[in-house]
Design a protein around this nucleic acid. Structure first.
Lengths: 128, 128
DNA sequence: ATCTTGCATCGACAGCTATCAATACAGCCG
DNA sequence: CGGCTGTATTGATAGCTGTCGATGCAAGAT
């Protein structure tokens, strides 16, 4: 959902250096929207911090005061955003991080070092 | 809203290396939620890519097929998320990026390079 | 085959959100 | 002063989203 299709040239200049076109913005927004929920952020961090690589849903669900279908729903959204992936193994389902996606986001949010900021933060240059 | 107070120790280990606690997740989610809309992403990129530092609202509004109040609303959300800031100068209002916030997000999404992805199990991220 | 457990899907509902038209406010100009 | 322009706020509304209980499906256990 983010860079698995033909993103020729979309390597990562994005967001902070050039205006996004609408299609790119729509795609990116899906991923950020998936991150825009505390439950999903915690799920993602629980999954990602298992550098063992994977977590069983049965380890995730009890960490929240939410019903099992709700957790399942959030996991689905994270998966549709390309942030995680999963596999059934016997009775259990295991989830793991897709680091390419988070790497991509990090790149998109990283401002090219050489960018000369006006002066701190508030460019109150034009003093009338 | 994100790191302008005392985030002692919260430098950036976040998200991918250790499970987020709920308060952190709630705070972070606000920022990601602000990014979870195509219009706001385009606004942010238009503002950020002006490394001159600032953009007049009057330059932003006509770039969208949306009413002026809607654009104003989106700008307000971006500002509340700490992603941009603004200043009135005469008749016009100018917005600029708050790079600290995007830097923080980039750091949060950046996985410590040395993290050895296991491969015995499933994470067939790119290989296979 | 049947029961049991783990997870996903379905349908419903409350709360939030993006959008607009109308209006208010701030500053310039005459 | 009164009018004009650029932004923000308000109020209303359609659509989306997070949540749950109920149900369905997969796979191991009996």
């Amino acid at each position: 959902m983010l860079g698995q299709s033909d993103d020729a040239g979309a390597c990562c200049p994005g967001l902070l250096t050039a205006p996004l076109d609408e299609d790119q913005a729509v795609e990116l927004a899906k991923v950020f929207k998936a991150l825009g929920d505390p439950v999903r952020l915690r799920l993602l961090s629980m999954i990602a911090s298992r550098s063992g690589g994977e977590v069983c849903v049965c380890d995730l669900t009890p960490a929240f005061d939410l019903s099992q279908p709700t957790i399942s729903h959030h996991l689905k959204l994270l998966r549709q955003a390309g942030l995680i992936d999963c596999e059934r193994r016997g009775t259990w389902v295991y989830y793991w991080l897709v680091p390419e996606t988070t790497d991509r986001l990090a790149g998109i949010l990283t401002r090219p070092a050489g960018e000369p900021l006006p002066e701190g933060t508030a460019p109150a240059g034009a003093a009338s």
